[in-house]
Design a protein around this nucleic acid. Structure first.
Length: 220
DNA sequence: ACCCAGGTGGCCC
DNA sequence: GGGCCACATGGG
């Protein structure tokens, strides 16, 4: 199974090229984006991030200063803005214990830090792992709706009960080399594949995995 | 006028 | 432990 996952990775990389994720300038911007993009189109998140940047608020200290109400106005385009303002504030309260110092935060080991992030209101497994991997350079593979959908289409979903988050995550982590750059690139490539070829209504033309896609074999 | 998007938490059984 | 539902904006 190890070779299967790596082969898929190689094919995606060859087809799409390096994705160079996460699209952000700083670690704090990664974290902010990770919370804002929850069930939300990235284009909308970009608008919210642009608002924050224009106001000079893309640092923990500065963002901690603005009221939750004011924060709502900046992030409105990203949707669920009242929830997300609260969630950002919640994370900042947590970060205050580290004197708003992300280097200090990420000095902690991945498992202990993951547990602490999951304990925060508004940070579930995907957001936690996005923060750990892309902001903290920690070995924590990100699973999202796209990843699940793709592996269902590939016919790798049900047999071992790989539907639950941690199960699918363990499956990846056990079967590919433990390298941060590989984790980052693989997730980015899966998102790219999903957007181009693995939507709810699949676009099989030109899909680099078309020959191994169970959905394709069943319906064409 | 629909459907969808890089989830999460709360409530119910 | 699993099955719904609210949360909200912008684009196709």
């Amino acid at each position: 199974m190890r070779s299967r996952l790596l082969e898929i990775y190689q094919r995606l990389l060859r087809y799409f090229g390096h994705q160079d994720w996460w699209p952000a300038r700083t670690r704090f911007e990664v974290i902010t984006g990770a919370i804002l993009t929850q069930n939300t189109n990235w284009k909308n998140v970009e608008k919210a991030i642009a608002n924050l940047r224009k106001a000079g608020l893309l640092s923990p200290e500065r963002l901690a200063e603005v009221s939750e109400k004011e924060l709502c106005e900046y992030i409105r385009p990203s949707g669920f803005y009242k929830q997300k303002a609260k969630r950002l504030k919640c994370f900042l309260d947590f970060l205050k214990k580290y004197r708003y110092n992300l280097s200090l935060l990420f000095r902690e080991d991945v498992h202990s830090l993951r547990r602490k992030l999951l304990a925060l209101n508004g940070i579930g497994p995907e957001t936690a792992d996005s923060i750990l991997l892309y902001a903290g350079n920690k070995l924590s593979f990100v699973i999202d709706a796209y990843t699940k959908r793709i592996f269902l289409r590939l016919g790798m979903g049900n047999p071992e009960g790989l539907l639950k988050y941690e199960q699918l995550q363990n499956f990846f982590q056990r079967n590919i080399p433990q390298r941060v750059d590989l984790y980052k690139e693989y997730h980015a490539l899966l998102v790219e594949l999903a957007k181009k070829h693995c939507r709810k209504e699949p676009v099989c033309n030109g899909c680099p995995l078309v020959d191994v896609c169970k959905f394709y074999r069943l319906t064409h």
